[in-house]
Computed example of a mutant assay.
Amino acid sequence: MAAMPTLLIVHHTPSPTMQAMLEAVLVGARDDAIEGVDVVVRPALAATAVDVLAADGYVLGTPANIGYMSGALKHFFDQIYYPCLDATVGRPYALFVHGNNDTTGAVRAVESIATGLRWKRLRAPVTVIGTPDVKDREACWELGASTAASLML
């Protein structure tokens, strides 16, 4: 029997806002309508190349810090880039980003690294400025659900 596909969610959630966005992504990814997908969640500072290699798709979450992704997510990429470079080509990913003023630099930085890894972006990133409203939380839910559903056999 083939192993169940795995969605790896790597996040840095230092604020209540990022935590709320992560929780919405998780509820979407774990929706009852999505069957046969294992959802694994790792903080960016704890996620390893082994986690990435074992997964079939990825959701990444980061705050926008000083115009860039969080140092924690950058550390994650630094740890996994070369060990995973050839083995994860073409795998799908999605991104959610929170910023107080702007998310452009953080999105650009993550997309640049994901392009280097030759991962396939599934959909436009969910970006939130300020406090997430109902529509923002729904967008996070949809991000988690659609990414997990894309892995269903």
Rank of each mutant, 00 (worst) to 15 (best):
F77L: 11
P132A: 02
A106T: 12
M21A: 11
R108I: 06
I66T: 01
D133C: 08
Q79I: 11
Y82Q: 05
L45F: 04
Y82M: 10
S146K: 06
G36L: 10
D31V: 09
V52Y: 12
D136F: 09
D56Q: 06
A106N: 12
D32T: 03
D51N: 04
D78L: 03
T104I: 01
S146C: 07
A64V: 07
L60P: 03
S146E: 15
A109R: 00
A46D: 15
L122H: 13
I129S: 09
D32M: 02
Y82E: 01
D32L: 04
Q79M: 04
A94Q: 07
R42I: 01
A47G: 06
T88Y: 13
R42Y: 01
D102W: 06
N100V: 07
P92D: 06
P83K: 07
A24L: 05
T115W: 05
A87S: 05
L95K: 10
E23F: 01
K120P: 00
R42V: 01
A124Y: 01
A33P: 07
P63M: 02
C84W: 08
A20H: 05
G57D: 10
E142N: 05
V59G: 08
G105W: 05
I113N: 07
L60F: 14
Y81R: 00
L45Y: 04
E142D: 11
V25S: 08
Y82T: 07
T103N: 13
T104L: 05
A46Y: 08
A64R: 00
L95W: 07
F77R: 03
V89M: 13
A114I: 07
V89L: 03
